[in-house]
Simulated assay, not measured.
Amino acid sequence: MPDLFINPARVDFTTLRLFCEVAHAGSITKGAKRCHLALSAASRRISDFELASNATLLERTSQGVILTPAGHVALQHALRLTQGFELFSDELHEYSKGARGHVRLWANMSALVEFLPTALFAFLEQFPDIHVEVEEQLSGDIIRAVVDGVADIGIFAAGLPCHGLQVAPYRADQLVILTPNNHPLAERDRVDFRTCLEYDFIGLNRGSSLLDTISNASKKEGIALRLKIQVRSFDAMCEMIAANMGIGVLPLGVCARRLQAWNVKAIPITDRWANRRLLIATNSTREISSSAALLVDRLKSNATC
């Protein structure tokens, strides 16, 4: 490898910035002032820079300084280096304050459908250099993922053990009975869950916190849940209900805008458990990244329960 003409160890970014300011101002005095350096220190740095370059970069006159041909070349490279360093510094600062980074967010279906699209859109508009990786998962799996460090942030329904997590309330989630418009329950404006247990249900797959909720509620009533069909999504539940296959419990926000299209009715459930809470959680034993902390703060600022 050939020897370098200029030893990088003899040139620092303070000197490069000073040289750029001196060249633009046409004065070592003015350049020193802009860099907050004493005139003697600035003059010494410029002389050392010329010595390290083995070239005369500035022509001294009674009116100030003028760039020599070598000085013009030096200025072009000094500008590139100082601008590159400033960009490097700015980007690292953005990482340090969280404005850049990667966040893994796991949420249950209810949060993902009802609340997160608007919240994430606003967040990513403000922080476009943060990549948020979102996964829809069952509440129990979300808790395990946050505990194990697979997910940075989790949003799930309250009621499950949260050991190892730092949790905060996020949103209220009103559950309703969804029925076909020609169902006997469709004549009601409100209904208790015990009455609903007389009919066949469409439910989510096992492991869903919503399925656990209605299963536990049926056990407390002492009536077996007549679970006719299990599906993987709210949309599939609604399609089955619209086809008169049964009734189902869903969050109101998931189905409210599509009741007419599906020809179904949402009936409020009078039982207390039907007003459930969604929680936002992080690992209580691991410090989250600055980017994840920014997203948590934004989500908490939008909390309504």
Rank of each mutant, 00 (worst) to 15 (best):
P128C: 04
R60D: 11
N205K: 09
S209G: 15
G203C: 12
A23E: 13
R34E: 14
F13E: 08
V11G: 04
L67A: 08
T68G: 02
P8G: 06
C35A: 12
E94P: 02
Q83V: 15
I288K: 14
L58G: 05
Y199A: 10
Q63W: 08
N54F: 07
L279A: 10
E221N: 01
T285N: 06
W273F: 08
K97L: 04
L185M: 14
L299C: 06
S27G: 07
E86C: 12
S40L: 12
A52H: 11
H93Y: 15
N108W: 09
N7T: 08
S301N: 01
C238Q: 00
A157K: 10
E91R: 03
A78D: 06
G253M: 02
A78H: 10
T195E: 08
V254I: 06
F123W: 08
L4E: 14
C255T: 04
L294H: 08
G101Q: 03
L87G: 02
R144F: 09
R188K: 14
P251D: 01
V231M: 00
W273Y: 09
D271F: 06
H163E: 12
T213H: 05
D235C: 06
T56W: 13
A107Y: 04
K220Q: 10
V296S: 07
Q83L: 13
G71N: 04
Q126W: 00
V73K: 11
D90E: 13
D200M: 07
L185W: 12
A122H: 09
A145F: 08
A217S: 00
A55Q: 11
E59P: 09
A261E: 07
D189N: 15
R34L: 13
D129N: 03
W262F: 04
L67E: 05
Q260A: 09
D200R: 14
A70T: 15
L295I: 02
N108V: 05
L299N: 14
F85R: 05
L299E: 03
S289L: 01
D12M: 11
Y95E: 03
E59K: 15
E287M: 07
E287T: 11
T213Q: 02
I280W: 08
V296M: 01
T270N: 07
C162R: 03
